[in-house]
Design a protein around this nucleic acid. Structure first.
Lengths: 147, 147
DNA sequence: TGTTTTCCTATCGGATCAGTAGGGATTAGC
DNA sequence: GCTAATCCCTACTGATCCGATAGGAAAACA
C-alpha cells in the first residue's frame, strides 16, 4: 500500500475548486500557481478526476474546471482512488508457491484489516470537512497576524 | 505510505519462529523453504529484525534464530517498522513553495490521521494473536480434510 | 581443519513515480 | 474565419528504489 504525491496534489486541487465556490470555472493554471503544482502534471490529475466524475470541465477560452458534485458528496477516498487507482498490497516477484506451511494467508488477513481501516478513515472525511478545516486554519492565521 | 514484500516476509518469518516454539534455534534455510522466501533475501530481513532486538541469533553449525521476546510482547507494527523503516508519506520533488494559499498542511493532517490509524491497527495485533489465527486455520484445514 | 551457519556489503535488473513534451481539439472574442 | 486561450491525449525521460542475487568474511561446532 502506498500514498503518492499525485494523490496529494489531487486533494489540493479539488479543495482549491471547492473554496473557489463561484459560478465561473477555475483554470488549471490558476490552481497550479496557487498550490505550487507543475501545470502539465496537474492536467493529468484533473483528467483522472474528470474521468472519475468528480470534476467537470469546459474547454476553450475562459474554460476551466469545477466540482461535479457538492463538496459534502465528495469523499477524500474517492479522490485518492480516482488519481492513484485502487490501493494495492505488496507483490512478491516469484509469487505463488502455495505451500500450505506458508503463512501468507495470515499476513493477507492483516493487510486486509489495515486496508479496510485506511479506506474507512479516508471515506469518513469529505471535501466539505476539509473546507471547514481550511477556513478554520485561515481564521487562526488571520488572528495570529492581528496580534 | 507503502507496504512492502519485505514487511510481509518479516511477519511470516517471525510467525514461523513463534510456531517453532522449541529450544533449538531455527535455521534461515528452513524458514526460507517453508515460507517460500529467497534465502539470501530472508537473511537481510532477519538481520534487520536482529538489529531491532526482535530476534536473537547464534552462528556456526547448528546455529539459527529464535525470538528475543515472548510472542505476546512482539507487535506486528514492530516487525514492519524494523524491516521497512518508519512508514513515510509522499514526497514531492520540487518541494516547499510555502505559499500560504497552498493547502499542503490540510493534506498533511489527513495523512497524519491515516498514519496514526494504521499504526494503531498494526500495534494492536501481537505475534501471539497471529499464532492463534494460524492454529485456528490449521485446525479448520484438518477438519476439512477429515470430511 | 573443514563444515555449517550467520553476517556484511555491493551490485543488478526492472518497475514505477514525478515530471516533461508535443501536438491536437474545442471554445470565446474579434 | 482567425487568433488566443484552454483543455485533452499520448508518449517519453530521468531518477529512485524495490526485490533479489552474489561474494566472501566471521564464528561456532565436530
Amino acid at each position: 500500500m502506498y500514498f503518492s504525491a499525485k494523490g496529494e496534489y489531487g486533494i489540493m486541487a479539488v479543495l482549491d475548486l471547492a473554496l473557489a465556490n463561484g459560478e465561473a470555472p477555475v483554470q488549471a493554471k490558476a490552481i497550479a500557481e496557487r498550490q505550487g503544482i507543475p501545470l502539465r502534471f496537474l492536467e493529468q490529475i484533473l483528467s483522472a478526476l474528470r474521468h472519475a466524475g468528480l470534476v467537470e470541465s469546459s474547454r476553450g477560452a475562459h474554460g476551466g474546471y469545477r466540482l461535479a458534485k457538492p463538496a459534502d458528496k465528495i469523499r477524500v477516498g474517492d479522490v485518492i482512488q480516482a488519481v492513484d487507482g485502487p490501493i494495492a498490497m505488496p507483490t512478491r516477484r516469484g509469487n505463488g508457491n502455495g505451500h500450505h506451511t506458508s503463512h501468507g494467508s495470515i499476513v493477507q488477513g492483516v493487510w486486509k484489516e489495515v486496508k479496510d481501516n485506511v479506506l474507512e478513515t479516508l471515506n469518513r472525511t469529505t471535501l466539505a470537512d476539509l473546507c471547514r478545516r481550511a477556513r478554520d486554519l485561515e481564521e487562526q492565521r488571520a488572528l495570529m497576524y492581528h496580534i
